[in-house]
Write a protein that binds this DNA or RNA. Structure first.
Lengths: 339, 339
DNA sequence: CTGAAAGCGCTTACAG
DNA sequence: CTGAAAGCGCTTACAG
């Protein structure tokens, strides 16, 4: 019951192992009839080239790595990642490249994981998410010479290609929308301030607030946990109605969810006295009452674009950064005209 | 800038490549002083054995596979999986075995993925989740002779080891608790009925209902989507108060969440007129108001146990099925005495 | 259009 | 305690 090898196929088809290899890997070298016979035999015996042997010969792992540096509990409730992963794989599996996944606590551990994978030649490249404004990983990756794509805005300090989405534009659209509804007191509950995407969105928020001359536009930083999100909301709402924001924009769907719950606990009616916008969209947004108005975009497509870019980088066609679709506002029940 | 190979290390340390290999892989063959020198050189040059070369020599991939057969959107909002994955990896990374992940639509595609990985010798074994009561994957895996562990109750029809948790006991505890609060009309919103774990829980629910002589104990099947969960809740609540259940037990946290929202939309106060219990616990449960009473257990530990069992199976120590901790009820604000 | 052979970087009996 | 060599299963110039 041993797995068949290329020699078994060659023998059975009456050719050399070299020919079997050529037949499988394209290249017009092989006569069509010979190829057909080889393929038939291979198929019949259920043969597929050993990834190890092939990898050794061509010095490629046919795999890429994704290491997520977040606590498991935060990751779990964040729908973004599974969708992103599904998007990656849609692209990878058709090209027979595998995805190695690791979940770690911090950047140090993340780098260590990539370093190990790379040294062991388990991966040909890596996808980097959740970039910090100052992120030790990017220069480390560059000195290791690991092909890498950065998921987030392109960085002036690096030649690595980025796959990104215009978060600033999405935030601007959100503020325009709220101002259009008559809101003048708008707060932002932001993600972790070390993340570059947080910084970009905060800057866009503040610029929009200035442009519209909003009298009150506070930004509260959190670490994406439930507690931090709830605490921020509580802080914003635990004052007299005149001093409260009439709208809060959250950096993701999870915190917006807890925003709804906190408002309910404090008996601030949504959307009558408070409008809420979620910075990400997922099924979660339709699981609360009222359902959340949210910034929506195709995360799977974002993952697919990231995979394509990395594959191109690995193949040596130096791809530039690619901009993915901008999120657009999906209006549901959590927003209304300002009281 | 080429990556160093074992020959580079051997040369630099003044020994044969064979010795380098022995030095690294234990086995008391090597003199302590020689080993120390070899390790020092390897470390200095940043050398790690190529996974491909090593894999080819020992006929092991040093990797296991996990293929999740669910839609990306359902997966994303389900905190279980990321926690489970984090648990798997805690165990894997210390032993230098990698995790290959794939997300597919159905069992057919899942099997195809495993078959490909196995034929290419990319994995040494596989973890199977979300088992169906009648599941084509288990016999297919057995005929392929892929080492596999089943995450779910052991199956009479298979010799594969299972890692499981006593769902029946957890459900029983839940019903005892609700009955203790005076509830007599208790409904269950179940997951997909093809899943064996759904069947087990439903059976336990019905047995407990019978034991307590409950006059009303309907079970509604869903497919785990938001819509189905909301629809089931709506069906249960859209009748006069006398005919409604006073408590609903959901199969996971996500549907319980949407249960809270639906109750709110229909103006059924929770927990005053309706108690709600979530079948899984995660941060989501504390993100709603009132926070959800939930069946809680250590999912990371569950993942770790699964990894350990698979690793043991691969190494040939025929591990039996292992029972992981039983979930226990964490009481929060969504349950109260029956009206 | 096809074959024979070297080489990828490890591991592991086999000798000494 | 250590070395020399075969072998794992592919790919790919090199000949013909």
């Amino acid at each position: 019951m041993k797995r068949p090898t290329i020699s078994d196929i060659a023998e059975r088809a009456g050719v050399s192992t070299g020919l079997v290899s050529y037949a499988l890997n394209g290249s017009g070298r092989v006569a069509e009839s010979t190829r057909a016979k080889i393929l038939a035999v291979a198929d019949e015996m259920g043969w597929r080239p050993s990834a190890a042997a092939r990898g050794l010969a061509v010095a490629k792992a046919q795999a890429i790595g994704l290491v997520l540096a977040r606590s498991a509990s935060t990751l779990g409730v964040e729908p973004f990642f599974m969708k992103f992963i599904a998007g990656l794989e849609g692209e990878l599996s058709t090209r027979r490249v595998a995805l190695l996944l690791q979940v770690v606590e911090d950047h140090e551990a993340a780098l260590e994981a990539v370093r190990a994978w790379w040294a062991e030649q388990r991966i040909d490249g890596v996808i980097v998410t959740d970039l910090w404004t100052t992120d030790a990983r990017v220069s480390a990756l560059e000195t290791l010479r690991v092909p890498a794509v950065l998921v987030g805005p392109p960085r002036p300090d690096s030649g690595l290609p980025a796959v990104w989405s215009d978060d600033a534009a999405a935030i601007t659209e959100t503020i325009e929308y709220l101002v259009g509804l008559g809101h003048r007191r708008i707060a932002r509950v932001a993600g972790h301030s070390v993340f570059e995407h947080t910084r970009v969105r905060t800057a866009a928020f503040q610029a929009a607030a200035r442009r519209h001359g909003l009298p009150y536009a506070p930004v509260l930083d959190t670490d994406y946990t439930v507690e931090a999100g709830a605490k921020a909301t509580e802080e914003l709402l635990s004052v007299s109605q005149a001093l409260r924001p009439t709208a809060i924009v959250y950096d993701n769907d999870v915190m917006a969810l807890s925003g709804i719950a906190t408002a309910r606990r404090l008996e601030v009616p949504v959307p009558q006295q408070l409008s809420i916008v979620a910075g990400d969209d997922s099924q979660l947004c339709e699981m609360v009452f009222p359902p959340l108005t949210a910034l929506s975009r195709d995360i799977q497509d974002y993952g697919a674009a990231s995979a394509r870019t990395l594959l191109a980088l690995i193949e040596g066609t130096g791809p530039g950064s690619v901009q993915s679709a901008t999120a657009h506002l999906v209006v549901r029940g959590s927003t209304a005209a300002a009281a």
